[in-house]
Computed example of a mutant assay.
Amino acid sequence: MRIRLLLALLACGVVVGVGSTTDVTVLHIQDARTGETTGVERIDPGQEFAIHYIHSFDKTPIHEVYVIRDGKIVQIREEFQYFAIGLEYTERDQERVGNFTVLHMERAFDSFSLRVATYTNQSLVIGDERTPLTDYAERWDTLTFSAERMSYLEYAYYKTTTQA
């Protein structure tokens, strides 16, 4: 019986040890006003993620696409059906793909902030998962997005204690 208990404790120690020393890259989402963590999303190296929303005036879909590189969030493209107010305009580095104009860019940020709007149906898209930004904050609150390395245990803690 003591050997089983000892082996169980040893196994738990190994799991905790590995979890506390294994780092993961996350998209850290915080309330811009309070700094409170409202969500963390694991991002694998080279994996794209996007903010999708509907343009408030033109009512057309827009996708802002990012990757995390060297600890920074890098916007690599913006995809939209039609040019609308507030969108980047350039005749360089763009192409038409299906019904979308794709504007290629390389814009690096330590972090960026985004207000959760009422009528634009904003969501964070990672792979096949789409999460409404209202899962991270109330409408009209501002969220700050940053790239971070954290231990797997810290990630697991935030993942289980934040967002609905």
Results as ranks from 00 to 15, higher is better:
Thr144Asp: 14
Ile126Met: 07
Ile54Met: 14
Glu41Met: 12
Leu5Phe: 08
Glu95Pro: 06
Val15Ala: 15
Phe83Asp: 07
Phe100Asn: 14
Thr134Cys: 12
Ala137His: 03
Asp110Trp: 00
Arg115Glu: 09
Leu133Glu: 03
Thr25His: 08
Arg130Gln: 13
Asp31Pro: 01
Leu124Arg: 03
Leu10Met: 13
Asp70Val: 02
Leu133Cys: 04
His104Gly: 04
Thr90Tyr: 03
Phe80Val: 00
Glu64His: 05
Ser146Tyr: 06
Leu10Cys: 08
Ile68Lys: 02
Lys59Leu: 14
Asp128Tyr: 13
Val26Asp: 08
Phe100Gly: 09
Glu138Val: 10
Gly17His: 10
Glu148Asn: 13
Val18Ile: 15
Ile54Ala: 03
Glu48His: 10
Val102Leu: 12
Phe80Pro: 02
Tyr155Asn: 09
Pro61Tyr: 10
Leu10Asp: 04
Val40Met: 03
Pro45Gln: 07
Val15Thr: 08
Ser123Lys: 07
Thr142Phe: 01
Ser56Tyr: 09
Val74Ser: 00
His55Ser: 07
Asp70Ser: 10
Pro45Leu: 09
Tyr158His: 15
Pro132Asp: 11
Ile85Phe: 13
Val14Gly: 07
Gly13Tyr: 13
Tyr136His: 01
Leu143Thr: 01
Ile54Leu: 12
Ala108Gln: 04
Val16Pro: 08
Val18Arg: 07
Glu78Ile: 07
His63Gln: 10
Glu64Val: 02
Leu87Cys: 04
Thr160Pro: 00
Gln81Ile: 09
Arg115Met: 05
Asp58Ile: 10
Val116Gly: 01
Thr22Leu: 15
Trp140Lys: 05
Asp70Thr: 03
Ala84Asp: 08
Phe100Trp: 14
Val15Asn: 08
Lys72Trp: 00
Arg33Lys: 10
Tyr53Met: 06
Arg107Trp: 05
Tyr155Ile: 11
Arg130Trp: 08
Ile54Phe: 03
Gln47Cys: 00
Gln47Met: 10
Arg77Glu: 15
Ala117Met: 04
His55Tyr: 06
Ala11Lys: 01
Thr162Ile: 07
Thr160Cys: 06
Gly13Arg: 11
Thr131Ile: 15
Val67Asp: 04
Val24Ile: 14
Glu106Arg: 12
Tyr157Phe: 15
Leu124Asp: 07
Asp93Lys: 11
Asp70His: 06
Trp140Arg: 08
Ile85Lys: 06
Glu64Phe: 02
Tyr155His: 14
Thr142Asn: 02
Ala137Pro: 01
Ile3Glu: 15
Val40Glu: 04
Tyr53Ile: 02
Glu48Ile: 04
Arg96Trp: 13
His52Leu: 12
Leu27Arg: 02
Glu36Ile: 10
Ile76His: 02
Tyr152Asn: 14
Thr34Tyr: 12
Ala50Asn: 06
Gly13Asn: 11
Val18Gln: 08
Ile126Val: 15
Asp58Cys: 02
Lys72Asp: 00
Lys72Gly: 00
Tyr155Arg: 07
Gln94Ser: 09
Tyr158Glu: 12
Tyr158Lys: 07
Phe145His: 00
Glu129Ser: 10
Leu103Pro: 05
Leu9Met: 13
Cys12Ile: 14
Ser56Met: 05
Tyr66Met: 04
Met1Phe: 05
Gly35Lys: 00
Thr144Arg: 11
Arg77Met: 10
